[in-house]
């Protein structure tokens, strides 16, 4: 059964995943436009949740997160890494948004069996550090896909990301995620026609169940659905969909993007190039054909 788990998605499935990822990014952009100084993280997360439910979302990988200010860099309690990174400070809190304060919106809706997991950052007004982080995030997107295309082991890819962070002078803040993951697998669920599904502690039970099944299967077969710098990820890329989320921190500012990487038996590509951070790089003239020195 596990051989089928790791099949590359069909074109039809890719369309389904692309549609839900577009929807998730539209949600982030819509809510981002509604954010005002004084709003709390909980209000922002609730806006996202309502918007997505109105669009017909029927399940979650996780319900929407929002981080404001230095919480974007996981400073303070939210950076507590013990217990494998399961940390209540992750949940949206009462931090209020201010002018010039960076924010991150992260949502992972499922609809009709397809799941997306996206990360989006912004600021009301201007923040030079955030701008720089968002510019530099381009290099990570190019690095990750090129190494996966070369079939590098996933732990090596993650270590290359660590080295790039070190060269840039950034903290790899995704290390504060559970199990220090740079990415995690996303599986297709059954399209059972139900209007809603069970969540526990804001995580969708069906999606987490798939992840746990992957962990169990991987233990026997020598791979993992959780992609980090550790030995458990010392295996070639497994075909399927990976939600990749490099999260950079510099001083009190954090920035990330998150999107689905498609891995096939012999290739890899980003599911969709029409996403906000890519559009932003294009608008800023950063997407030139000349490759920047690695």
């Amino acid at each position: 059964m596990n051989t089928t788990r790791h099949a590359a998605p069909s074109p039809q499935d890719l369309d389904g995943f692309r549609a839900i990822q577009q929807l998730a990014y539209r949600c982030a952009e819509t809510v981002s436009a509604q954010l005002k100084p004084g709003m709390t993280e909980r209000q922002a997360a609730a806006l996202m949740k309502t918007w997505l439910l109105d669009q017909g979302v029927d399940d979650w990988f996780h319900q929407p997160f929002a981080w404001f200010g230095d919480r974007t860099a996981f400073r303070g309690a939210v950076g507590f890494k013990q217990l494998g990174g399961f940390n209540p400070a992750f949940y949206p809190g009462l931090r209020r948004l201010e002018e010039g304060m960076p924010y991150i919106l992260d949502c992972a809706p499922s609809m009709n069996g397809y799941t997306a997991d996206i990360g989006y950052c912004g600021v009301i007004g201007e923040n030079r550090i955030l701008d720089r982080l968002m510019d530099d995030l381009l290099e990570y997107r190019e690095l990750i896909v090129s190494l996966v295309k070369q079939r590098k082991h996933l732990s090596e890819v993650s270590q290359a990301v660590d080295r790039l962070c070190q060269r840039h002078g950034y903290d790899p803040r995704h290390k504060a995620y559970p199990f220090e993951v740079l990415a995690h697998r996303v599986e297709k669920l059954d399209n059972d026609g139900e209007k809603s599904h069970l969540s526990l502690f804001n995580f969708g039970v069906r999606n987490i169940g798939e992840l746990l099944k992957g962990v169990a299967a991987g233990r026997k077969e020598g791979h993992s659905p959780l992609w980090s710098s550790h030995a458990k990820s010392d295996h070639p890329p497994t075909p399927g969909l990976w939600a990749v989320e490099p999260h950079l921190g510099f001083r009190d500012v954090g920035a990330k993007w998150e999107e689905l990487l498609v891995v096939t038996e012999d290739d890899a590509f980003w599911l969709d190039d029409d996403v906000p951070h890519v559009r932003r790089w294009r608008a800023r003239g950063l997407l030139n054909p000349v490759k920047r020195a690695a």
């Binding site: 030079r128 550090i129 720089r132 060269r167 002078g169 510099f250 001083r251």
Partner: peptide, 13 residues
């Protein structure tokens, strides 16, 4: 190159 990167970061501050 490494020194120049530090310079960029310092200027961000």
């Amino acid at each position: 190159e490494a020194a120049e990167r530090t310079v960029e970061l310092v200027r961000l501050l």
